[in-house]
Amino acid sequence: MKRLCVLCGMFLLIACRRDMQDQPKYRPFRKSTFFGDERSARPQVAGTVGRGQLHEDNLLFSGKSGTVFADTFPVPVDEALLRRGQERYRIYCSPCHGLLGRGDGMVVRRGYRPPSSFHVERLRAQPAGYFFDAISHGFGAMPDYAAQIPVRDRWAIVAYVRALQLSQNVPLADVPADERAELEKGTATP
């Protein structure tokens, strides 16, 4: 009889499942009834500087040396950086700029104001810091990507944009002899 009572009691407890599933605590993005803006995620307190937020390295965080755009990179440019840049470019930039940087991405085809191609003389002549600044603060119709792309990834993207510019403007003489014939036939795939 006692066992039966315990068993019945356990059946009654089945209904308690929900409370454990939805506990009165903050998980990411959960609504708050305490704060005025109803957000549990709080903005940084004004006038405070968190660890890693000092941004002392001017070149790394602004793309400038002094007050002019620098044409040097604050990080070593190697294959790993270019691969990272390619991946990040395809995520964040290609929707508008297109995979080759011609300014013909899908979003542009749907009506967004087309960006300039990276392969015009004006942009080929710009220093690396100029592109870093455009990503960080936006340029013209382009919004800023400061919240979406961390600083080091922005530099990786800049390096990849440089590689794209190189790739689209190679004198035929620089192409290895065996592949030159391929190019002249027009069968090479990009």
Binding site: P28, F29, P95, V107, R110, G111, Y112, R113, A141, P143, A147, Q148
Partner: peptide, 19 residues
Amino acid sequence: SATAGIPPTKTCMNCHSQI
């Protein structure tokens, strides 16, 4: 991060300010 992140409205407006 543990959470994938729900984009802020700003991310929507990146495109939908014009489209």
